[in-house]
Design a protein around this nucleic acid. Sequence first.
DNA 1: TTAAAGTTGTGAAATATTTCACAACTTTAA
DNA 2: TTAAAGTTGTGAAATATTTCACAACTTTAA
Lengths: 211, 211
Amino acid sequence: MNREMPKPSLSRICMIYNLLGELENEGITHISSTEIGARLGISAHSIRKDFSFLAETGNAGSRYDVSKLRTQIGHELKINRKRKACIAGLGRLGTAILNYDMFSHNGYEITAGFDSNINIIETLKTNVKLYPAYQIPDIIKNEQIELAVIAVPADAAQLTAERLAAGGIKGIVNFSPVVINLTDDSILISNIDVVKEFQVLSAFIGLNEIE
Amino acid sequence: MNREMPKPSLSRICMIYNLLGELENEGITHISSTEIGARLGISAHSIRKDFSFLAETGNAGSRYDVSKLRTQIGHELKINRKRKACIAGLGRLGTAILNYDMFSHNGYEITAGFDSNINIIETLKTNVKLYPAYQIPDIIKNEQIELAVIAVPADAAQLTAERLAAGGIKGIVNFSPVVINLTDDSILISNIDVVKEFQVLSAFIGLNEIE
DNA sequence: TTAAAGTTGTGAAATATTTCACAACTTTAA
DNA sequence: TTAAAGTTGTGAAATATTTCACAACTTTAA
């Protein structure tokens, strides 16, 4: 990766990486920045600028080679690196994520599920190994799990995060509507708050309402 | 709302709004920008700047009155406005969202669920009324539904969005890993892509890896 | 009553990100 | 072979966002 890649660029490049995968399946071998932009709702300028943070992309003048570009991005961003992941909290949302194929299709192997309710652990039908929540630190350490999803209720989120941190987790996707505070700030946290998304949409809608 | 509120400010203010609700429950009546910042991991500067886009907030010099500020934000952003919502796609993720209490607790009433599989509609146990997918436009129109969650498989996302648009939906939270293109660009779309979140985390982790 | 400490609100400066413009190159088609 | 059309890559300009600095005010404590 050339110099510092801005966060928004990284996010867009991941979208492009996934699009390139679809294009490969469709049998499309070459594509221009304009076409990528039209598909993803991004300006072509932005896309070319994003690529300029990568070491190498296409040949100036001719369009991008789909599979070459995808390989290049995957390599530079280490997106294609296999990593182990776990789910903490096996309610409806947690089990939905546990069973979501897209993770394994993209190199993320879910190797553990955790819940504080032993009953859930014993009755849930899945191929993923399940453990009680207090074992989080040990399992993370032993299994070398790098990524975690937090899908526990709001009041358990902070404790769960601390247990994940104690095991040496490297990145967390937090679905609980609570901001997590960890002393080790090298642990990356990405927050997904569905209700907040509704509120933001609602506020924007409100702007266009007369009264 | 004073002048144009930047998107990041709006997002932070929604977080603050929700925090203020928690503080009310805890019986905390006053709070400073520094304290809000510490709780949410935002700088105090940012918070005060965000508030400057609102018409009125606190008295310069004294801390913010928690319930006054919450009321003010709710009023200006119309966050407290009740809106009807629906879920399109009743797989694991869709049903998880259908049963998520946090929506009703925040003024969003889920009044309809849709799926293309009639079998699911007939067997799913819920208080929410369920309909086959082709009825989306009619129901949206008749029930005056403003917000929607798309939780269908990737290949059905575009069609689902078009049906929602045909019914006059105003905002969509899209959980499918596909970019939706609508001709009516007054319809707001917020994309949540869990796999992309993993990829971004993975790329950041990769930056800190030696080899 | 008064000084010290703490706080808000907001222009201005600093920084980050997006958009523009165009040279250098490739492809296409006559 | 050659001109026209299309494309990338990237500095520079424009725009957006964050951070700073500080006046004006409030609270606290002696």
